[in-house]
Design a protein around this nucleic acid. Structure first.
Length: 259
DNA sequence: ATGGCATGACAATCATGA
């Protein structure tokens, strides 16, 4: 079973990229973030034509998340839940579904903007609510995967220039502690289950030729419960779509699970 | 040097991203 996550930065603009990527990478589950469209604009038929059933919760201009399911391989998803039940929120940032006995949680974590911002307070509150809700969710679903754009680089090795970024939004101690609390629930960072090359990132700024210079951050993650981590045989970032014309600033991340 | 680039709403700039 292959699980993937990709912040597409507008599904309207990136639909062709998603279709092309799925054709080359027919994963079983693809979690999408930053749809930037309302539910009535979601390209259900265009994704169905590629073999994927979509479950989504959208929003005008901002946010929006979806879970795409290769139904021929893994069947249909059940028990779709939108948002955090313990955190009333206008912003559409979370969707969960059960697929082939695995609980899939797809999240677009708040950016935070800066440590002085109200948005940073919101980010930490959202993370706290997510962590508390996940504790119960994991008790009900031993096989659970949390995929998405976390907007947190967990360690300095996930940052192209740790000195320049020290203490800033996306790498601050508060955010890294929140990430560690997720791990404290028993979740494992699939990427770090394996030896990895240095300087692997999942996001590069559109500006200043950041991708060409590999000036990026690893902020998109797949966290796995113990029952899934022991079955995980690989986890990789796919930088290829970042090289395409008019790309998302994020790259897909893929985890492979043995049967 | 607080820019730079991209997207969407809106109709010239502005909010947001990370």
């Amino acid at each position: 079973m292959k699980l993937a996550t990709w912040n597409v930065n507008s599904l309207k603009v990136r639909l062709g990229h998603v279709q092309e990527w799925l054709t080359a990478n027919p994963v079983d589950v693809l979690c999408l973030q930053e749809l930037k469209l309302t539910d009535d604009k979601f390209p259900i038929a265009e994704l169905a034509a590629h073999g994927y059933t979509a479950h989504f919760t959208g929003q005008k201009t901002y946010n929006g998340v979806a879970i795409l399911v290769n139904h021929a391989k893994v069947g249909e998803a059940t028990d779709i839940v939108r948002n955090l039940p313990n955190f009333p929120d206008e912003q559409q940032r979370l969707i969960s579904a059960t697929i082939a006995g695995t609980r899939i949680v797809c999240g677009y974590f708040p950016n935070g903007q800066s440590l002085e911002s109200d948005k940073f307070v919101y980010k930490l509150k959202w993370l706290d609510a997510l962590t508390h809700w996940l504790a119960g969710e994991m008790a009900n679903h031993p096989r659970l995967a949390l995929l998405g754009d976390y907007n947190i680089a967990p360690e300095d090795r996930d940052v192209h220039d740790p000195k320049a970024w020290e203490g800033q939004n996306l790498v601050s101690p508060q955010e890294r502690e929140a990430f560690a609390r997720l791990e404290g629930l028993g979740l494992r960072d699939a990427f770090r289950l394996f030896d990895q090359p240095e300087k692997i990132f999942s996001w590069w700024d559109y500006r200043m030729g950041a991708f060409r210079r590999n000036a990026g951050l690893r902020i998109d993650h797949i966290l796995l419960s113990a029952a899934l981590a022991e079955r995980c045989t690989a986890c990789e970032v796919d930088p290829v779509p970042r090289k395409w014309e008019q790309p998302s600033d994020h790259a897909p991340v893929v985890a492979t699970l043995a049967a």
